[in-house]
Every structure is written in C-alpha cells, then in structure tokens.
Design a protein around this nucleic acid. Structure first.
Length: 968
RNA sequence: GCCGGUGUGGCGGAACUGGCAGACGCAGCGGAUUCAAAAUCCGCCGCCCCCUAAAGGCUUGCAGGUUCGAUUCCUGUCACCGGCACCA
C-alpha cells in the first residue's frame, strides 16, 4: 500500500489506507483517553464502587505480565495479548464484568547489569522501558483497565510481597492437617505439652519450659515455611557473584575464566517440599494443558519406596538409603554414596587411602557438562563395609558421582542384577551380581540388568524373613513390614522437588524485611514498618571478595541500624539494639507469584488484596450451577478451584513460575487470605512466532539482508549467488529476521496487525511470520470498508433491502464467530467473516450501490462481531452507522448480536453417494428426510444405477445430512 | 537415551464427535475495466495420465491394521520441534 500514488489518495480520500487506518486508530484511542492521560477507554469498577453491576457474572482474564526490556515489544507479545483482548471484548458484549489488567515484572538482571556499566539507577532505565511498553500496548488498542496497572518495583506493591514473605516466616506446615498454620500456634502447643525438644547447640533433648527463649526460637526456626538454610553455592570472588552451574566451565567462570569456589552460604529458603503432595494432587482440579501438568508432575517427582538403614563397620552412624525397590534388598551386593556424602569425609579423615581423596576432589570439580557428556561409571572404594541386614553379608561401600547428593539420602544400595546403572558399575569394578527377581519371559543371563517387576527369588534368610515367590508388589510390602519390625527402615515417599532457594546476591530485587543481631539471630521487621525500600547506591558493581558480599552490603548506613529504627517489635528486641539488615534480595519470581491477586484491588493500602474484591474476582460458581447465588466461601463441589478464569502465556513458564505461584497461593489459602485453592483455572500457552531464515548447503545460516529472491521460491546469497534454502527459525538479531511491531503498525495499522497474528494459524501452534501474507487481512478490512463507505465521499453505502441469502449467512457467521472465540479458534472465526464479506461484495459493474452489499442493520451486526478483532475499524464504521456511544464510546457498551437458530439449517442438503467408498453421484435431499427415504432416492439415481451396473447391493449405509455409502 | 508434540497443495492453514480432504488467505494463471498502469471486480488453481476434453487413477510423512468408510482410531517406522537428562 505504501506504493499507492498520492493521486489516488486525493481522488479517494475515504479509502481505508494505512494512513487512514492509523489516523482512525489514534483518533479513537485519544477520544477515549482519560483526563489523567495514563490510560484510555475502559475501567472495570469493583464491587462497592460506582458503576459496578452486581447482577453480571465475572470473567477474570490474565496475560502473563511482561518484563519491560529496553528493546521494546517484539511480535510475540501481542499474540497472546490480542487473543485475550478478543475474548475479553467478546465476554464484555456477552454481559460479563471483565477484569483484564496489565502490569510489569520489573525487577531483574538486565537493568542491574546496565546500572553496573553506566551507573544509571535501574529504576530510571526500568521506568523508561515501562513507558515505552505501555505506549506500544496502548497503540494496539488492547482493552486493559489501565487504572489497575502497577509494577513489581513499586514500593506500594513490594511492600506486600515483603508482607507475604513475613507471613511465610511466621508460619509452619502442620502435616497432621496438611496445611500451613501460624507459628504462634506451634509455640503455644510446645508450651502446653511442655514437649521435649532437641536443642541445637548440645544435641540433647530438653523440656520446652527449661529452654531459654533463644533455644525455643531456634527450635521454632526449624519449622518456618520461610527459613534460613545452608546451601552450597558457586562463588566467584573476582566477579563478586554467585554463578549457576551452567555458567561454570572446568571450575572457572564462563565469563572471564576466573576461579570459582564452592562454598556453603546461609540463605533464605521456602519449604515448598511440604506442599509437594498438594501441588501434585491439585493438578487434577485445573483446566491446564496436559503437557504442563505432566511437566509439573515430573518436576515434583514423587516416588514411593523405603528408607533402609545399613550398619557400617567402624562407623557410628548407620548409612541410610532410599530405594523404590525394597524387594531387591537381598540382591544388594554393595553400596554407593555421593562424593559429597559425610561418610566419605569420615573415611578420608581416617586416612584410608590417598586415592579416595583424589577421586572425591576430581568428582566434585567435574562440571555438569563433563558429567553429562559421558555416562561411563567412575568411582572409588571407601574402604568401609556395610552389613546387608537381609543376608548378613559384608558388602563394600563405594563412592561414585552417579549417585547425587541432592536426591534421596545421597546414598544407594546397589542391586546390579536389576538396575542398569548399578549393573554397569558392577561390571566396571568387578563387583558381585546376584539375581533376586525373576521376570516372566525374560531370562536373566548376567549380561544385562533386568529392571522390571516379577517374582522374588534367592530372597530368604534363615530366621526372620522370606519373600521367595512373592510378586514385586507383595515383596515390597513384606520387606517394609520386616524392616519396620527390625527398626532399621520404613515406608518412605521421596520427591525430586527440593526446597526453593529464595535469596539472591543482587541489588535490583525486593529487600528482605529481616535484621540480625550481633550473634547472628534473625528478627522480622514489623508489618507496620513496611515497605522496606531499596537504598540507592553510588556504584552498583559487585564487590570483589572471598566471602560473598551482595551489593547491598555497600549501603553501610542502611544496613547498620538499630532494632527500633528498623521497626523490629520491641518485645522481640530492645529498640536500641544494634542490628544489621539482610543484604540478599528476593529473586525475580517473588513479584510474579501473586500479582494476579493485587490486580483485584491494586490501590488498597491496608490489605495485600481487599477481601471483598478478591472474593468477587477469584471465587465463582461452576458453569453447571451458575444460577446459584454467588458463593461466600470455597466449596469444592460447586466452585472452580482456580480463581483466574483464563491465564495466557508462554510455555517457558510451565514449571517454575506456575509452581511457585501455586505454592504461594496455597499458603495464602491455608492462612485464610484467599478464597480458592488454586490461582489459575484455565491455562493456555500461545505458540512461538518464528521467522524465515536462510541456510547454505553446509547448514550455516545467512542473515536475511544478505539473501535475495530470484524467481519464485528461489533464494540466493547475494554475495556469492549460491542457492540457499528457506527454513523456519526463531527470530534473532543476528539473523536480521526480527519483526518490529511499530513498523508493521505504520505500514498497515494496528487492526491489521491484530487480525494477521490471529489469522496466521492456531493460537497454540508455533508459526512463521510471513510479511507477504499480511496484505490478505489488510485487503479484508479495505473491502469491508468499501462495502459500507463511499471511498470518494465517505458516505454510507447500504443495501436498500436485506438479501435473504446474506441474512442467513450473517446469522451463521454470528454463530460461528461466537463459538470460535469461545474455543480460542480465531483463525477460523476470521475466515468465516471473510466468507461473509465475499458473499456480500458488490460486483464491479453495479451502478446502484443500494442494489447490493448489506443493509445498515446488517452492517451494524457485522461490525459488532468484528469489533473484538479490529476494534478501531469496527467503532469507526459503527459511528458512521449512527451507533450511539455508550459510557465509554463505540461498541463497548453494546451486546453480542443474536442469531436465529432456525436459519442455521437449510431446507435441502446435497449428499454425496459413494459406491465402495468412492463418490459416484450427488443428490439434493430434504434436510428432514429419514435414512430410508434417502436410501430410496440414492438407489433410484441414474448415475448410481449405472455405477452399480446390476451387481447385487449388499449394504447401504446412510448418515443423514452427511453421505450415503453403497456396498455391492 | 527417556517423555511430549507435530507431519495435509508452491506457502500459512481448514476439516470441532470415524462421514464430500484442501474452507479462508498468500503466491500463481486467465479475463473484465483502463489510452496504459496501479487499484478494483470476476474466474481458474493438489498430483498423474491426456493435444484437449470426457472419463480414469493417485493423494493428508512412510508401511501395515480395524471399518461400509480413516487426515481422524490401533501397531510399527521415519523426520522435525520442545522438554528432561545417571532421580536409585
């Protein structure tokens, strides 16, 4: 369109060109802009506010909020946002109160790194990026209620993030009722029962009443949901930062090649493992993609088995292992512990052999990449021996890096006959292999492990137990019962999920509201003193140091304060006590764990979310009982478990973000702060928008600006003239195939952009951006405009009377578009509207426009179903049609058009007649005709008689309205 | 290696519950309009056989199976994409 000569524009001033579209879009956006200038268009009042209609049902639709990067929006952002905008506008027309908010996930590393380089405060760069994102999103015309906007970096917001963290700090998980409770209840119980507790310092048990206050606190600390734990981290003294495993190569930092020390660090943790079972079970309550639920299930990694304690000769402590196959205990011929296991250190300190120490230091420094590159078993005997409690045999204890310290107890009993890894290890080090399971149809040859279930063999000892002949399931039960009787083991459930490390040695995150006294005891900052705001720093660069020092440690005036100034409750610590603030900050996940709740009442200054607003937006009735009065509390039988009705975002957040948010939500639910057990009801992942890229014969990629098309589908590298293949690839700067939304809007307008992204294909599919195709939907809008508006005068062009065929098709289109929106099938909805337009388009030669097109009333209904997709276009057309603006103008206050179900069916349908499954004839039959009548009509058809050619008819299958199949 | 997903014209895709494969759009071809071009409107457009047409045959990655009938269900297999990676 940019090639259209100016002459044309002058002759046809009301043609729907890119410039016209842009002007119309900006005009509508500005006409609806609020006096404060911050947003425009639509506000959804809360219960109790002016303009709130309590008679309407609620629809809470949420987009995963973006991290506002300096680069601005890319075309992937508007894909999900357009989809939710369409649904929300549709739901609005269908009579719902719609909550559709937007905000910013604004703490994060890029702004901090920029600050390190330039000294500019991250807040400055972040706010600038937010302003740019907001401008771009508003240009798309998304129907967000901008009055609810906030960023995770706003002290008014992170005040409540800190508040929730304090709540976790003040809570524990009571396994007897499987829920969180206030820690004060636990303290009261200890006092009431005067329980004996283990005192950390001495290890001895002591009565509660005999403990000092400090001893009591220390004991309670072991129960808190937010607790201080010791974790081994990769500290790089030169970079002054903690590195992730993948940032380390051969014990040195990927960046700069500096040495990295593995060292223990006290950090704040969340006891998410307490919630493992509920996080697992409640996946059944939500409407989420199967893939996402599977990922979460595997991440939690629940497995049932037994813990077995083996006595170790000459070592005071029994060696505890976890196994899922206690039935194979008789086949355990050796033990393996992780190199980090404390038993190994004890073995070394006993000076057994230099080889062991050498292996351990080698294994510990082996990078993850090295470990993954080769599955070859390495290991070293510790010189220690354990006793197999079932056989009484003396079995060697080895250490090997195939046993992971982080899983189970960091030690295994090795059953080489029935575990592939143990088998390989036994072969490599010539350890004995004993068969104890016989599997039907699988011979045990000693050449490979047999890992399945079967019946136990060789599994009896003289005195106490025999499981020979039992199935694996029965054998497990028998062995566990025996272990329990002997007091050396028990049934145990193990998880892959580990507690959540919540501390980061960074500046740009939420500070922890906690202080330490001179002895290192921690005290919470009182809720009344929140928010605890981040102090500005002169220099954001990390501190070079052998001991981890987060950037906040530099703010000495801020960190060194008194209990009173920090806001610690004087009952806990006298006000004049000198204290030091926590200098770690919270990770990026913190703010995104509960933002959906804050949107319900973003301005509430006395609650993290107003209880009334939370109840209205999060709690509802299931569709089957939608008529019942609004619920006041959660009822599993009649209420959906998830509060947000539709959550749309990328599948890259399928595990961590969604698991962490669920954990916080359940904790809040247990403590009575939210109404539902799950945060998100229906979850949807939009697909990735990819781009074309070009590949040389040797599979290397060529940037797009170095490729030209010579002839249809024939791409060559400009410099060499060599042929390159067009492939689909992720958009990347280096390939020069990134599409900038601003450019596309300038060239076609936001409505065309929105339509194109929805028309590309199914929302969940990954699909390539093809610039050439955009013109298709642009032409659709142009043709729709031309159908209704005289391009020279701007006057309406309406049909004088309704064509019944068009009227019928319009009803069908209204029906189909509504259905397709409900099932998020936007591409087919748009195709249906194009079909309607194709049918209504006037032929060139028609001199009187009133003879064709659509009537004013039909155009208005057409504009209304188009409105969710192309709102500016539809509203502009609506204003020409004389639609009176509602409260907010345009179609916003309007309703979805109705359709007449009777018009959805034809009187007659064409049915194909197949003979042996091949179509031989077509016949028109009345829609109401029954199978017998259709069969008679089909058999009487001349073409059918010819095709049968006198052969006897064996069978006739009639599917009314579909087809007839004759078998001869 | 394991788990999951996807394979349909030149391209993006449609076919929702086992019932007319290829809706709709792009690209392409032809026509009308025009002094001409652009724009617009109309028509054609899976592949093979064929001068053409009629007729016929083939076709949803590949090979089988179930069924009157399979893009759809089952078995095997190949390719691509995503996730996980010694989890005891």
């Amino acid at each position: 369109m940019s090639a259209t000569p100016n002459v044309e524009t002058n002759e046809l001033p009301h043609r729907y060109t890119a410039a016209y579209a842009n002007a119309v879009e900006v005009k509508w956006q500005e006409s609806l802009r609020w006096p404060d200038g911050k947003g425009y268009g639509y506000r959804q009042p809360n219960p109790g506010e002016a303009g709130f209609d309590a008679s309407k049902p609620k629809f809470y639709c949420l987009d995963m909020f973006p991290y506002p990067s300096g680069a601005g929006l890319h075309v992937g952002h508007p894909e999900g946002y357009t989809a939710t905008d369409i649904i929300c506008r549709y739901k609005k027309l269908k009579g719902f109160n719609v909550l559709h908010p937007m905000g910013w996930d604004a703490f994060g590393l890029p702004a901090e790194q920029y600050a390190i380089q330039t000294g500019v405060h991250p807040e400055v760069t972040t706010k600038k990026a937010i302003d740019n994102f907001r401008r771009q999103l508003q240009r798309f015309g998304f129907m967000y209620d901008w009055s609810r906007e906030f960023a995770t970096i706003d002290p008014d917001y992170y005040r409540w993030t800190q508040w929730i963290w304090l709540l976790a700090y003040e809570s524990w998980f009571d396994p007897s009722v499987r829920k969180a409770r206030a820690i004060s209840e636990l303290a009261a119980r200890f006092a009431r029962e005067n329980a004996e507790i283990a005192v950390a310092a001495s290890g001895a048990a002591k009565k509660w009443s005999d403990c000092t206050r400090r001893e009591q606190q220390a004991h309670l600390d072991t129960f808190r949901l937010a607790y201080l734990g010791t974790q081994t981290v990769n500290w790089c003294p030169k970079l002054g930062t903690v590195l992730a495993n993948e940032e380390i190569i051969d014990g040195r930092s990927e960046r700069g090649g500096h040495p990295v020390k593995r060292m223990p660090l006290k950090q704040w943790m969340f006891r998410i493992t307490s919630y493992a079972d509920r996080l697992l079970e409640d996946l059944a309550l939500v409407d989420w993609p199967e893939m996402t639920r599977t990922l979460q299930t595997e991440w939690i990694g629940r497995s049932e088995g037994a813990e077995i304690r083996f006595a170790v000769e000459g070592d005071g402590e029994p060696l505890s292992v976890f196994t899922t196959r206690p039935d194979t205990l008789f086949g355990a011929t050796y033990m393996v512990v992780a190199p980090e296991h404390p038993l190994v250190a004890r073995a070394i300190s006993r000076g057994n052999s230099g080889k062991l120490a050498e292996y351990v230091s080698w294994a510990k420094n082996r990078s993850d990449i090295d470990r993954q590159a080769s599955k070859e078993k390495t290991g070293c005997a510790t010189g220690l021996f354990a006793i197999n409690p079932a056989t009484g045999a003396r079995i060697p204890v080895w250490t090997a890096d195939y046993v992971l310290m982080g899983y189970g107890t960091g030690a295994i009993m090795a059953v080489p006959a029935h575990d592939e890894r143990d088998f390989e290890f036994a072969k490599a080090f010539a350890l004995p292999i004993v068969q104890v399971v016989e599997i039907d149809g699988v011979a045990f040859t000693g050449e490979a492990a047999t890992a399945g279930e079967g019946r136990a063999v060789n599994s009896a000892n003289a005195a106490t137990v025999s499981i020979n002949g039992l199935t694996t399931a029965d054998a497990k039960k028998t062995v566990i019962a025996w272990l329990e009787k002997q007091g050396i083991g028990a049934l145990r459930v193990n998880y892959r999920l580990r507690d959540w490390l919540f501390s980061r040695q960074r500046y740009w995150g939420e500070p922890f509201p906690i202080v330490y006294d001179a002895d290192g005891n921690h005290y919470p900052v009182s809720v009344a003193s929140l928010p605890l705001t981040l102090p500005p720093l002169a220099d954001y660069s990390p501190v070079e140091s052998d001991v981890p020092q987060p950037p906040l440690a530099k703010a000495r005036e801020w960190t060194h304060t008194t209990a009173g100034a920090a806001g610690v409750d004087p009952a806990l610590l006298p006000a004049n006590t000198p204290v030091v603030r926590e200098t770690n900050t919270m990770p990026g996940w913190a703010g995104s764990c509960w933002y959906y709740l804050r949107y319900c009442s973003p301005k509430d200054s006395s609650h993290f979310v107003s209880p009334e607003a939370e109840r209205y937006w999060m709690l509802s009735r299931k569709k089957s009982v939608a008529d019942a009065p609004a619920p006041t509390s959660y009822d599993a039988a009649t209420c959906p478990a998830g509060g947000v009705d539709l959550y749309v975002g990328g599948s890259e957040h399928a595990v961590l973000h969604l698991l962490y948010a669920r954990f916080w939500h359940k904790m809040l639910f247990d403590l009575g702060h939210v109404s539902t057990p799950e945060p998100m009801g229906k979850l949807f992942h939009q697909g990735l928008i990819t781009s074309y890229a070009y590949q040389r014969a040797d599979k290397t990629l060529v940037p797009n600006d170095q490729v030209e098309e010579r002839g249809e589908g024939n791409f060559v590298e400009t410099a060499t003239g060599a042929k390159v293949a067009q492939i689909v690839a992720k958009m990347s700067k280096s390939l020069k195939n990134v599409v900038n939304p601003d450019d596309v809007i300038a060239e076609y307008g936001a409505d065309t952009f929105r339509l194109y992204e929805m028309y590309m294909g199914p929302l969940e599919a990954s699909k390539p951006w093809n610039t050439r195709d955009i013109v298709g939907v642009f032409r659709f809008l142009q043709r729709a405009w031309r159908l209704a508006v005289d391009e020279r005068t701007g006057e309406l062009l309406c049909a004088a009377s309704a064509d019944p065929k068009i009227e019928k098709l319009l009803h069908r289109t209204i029906h189909k578009v509504g259905e397709d929106i409900e099932r998020l099938s936007f591409n087919t909805a748009i195709a249906a509207m194009i079909e309607l337009l194709n049918a209504a388009t006037r032929p060139t030669g028609m001199t009187d426009p009133a003879q064709g097109g659509m009537t004013r009333d039909q155009l208005e209904r057409f504009a209304r179903i188009l409105w969710p997709f192309a709102p500016h276009f539809a509203d502009e057309l609506g204003s020409k049609l004389g639609v009176k603006g509602g409260l907010n103008g345009g179609f916003y206050a309007s309703a979805w058009p109705s359709h007449d179900a009777a018009l959805l069916v034809d009187d007659e349908v064409e049915m194909p007649v197949q003979i042996q499954g091949k179509i031989k004839a077509r016949l028109m039959v009345p829609t109401k005709a029954d199978a017998a009548a259709v069969e008679a009509l089909a058999l009487a058809h001349a073409d059918v008689i010819a095709a049968i050619a006198g052969r006897p008819v064996k069978k006739v299958v009639v599917v009314p309205g579909r087809m007839v199949n004759i078998v001869v």
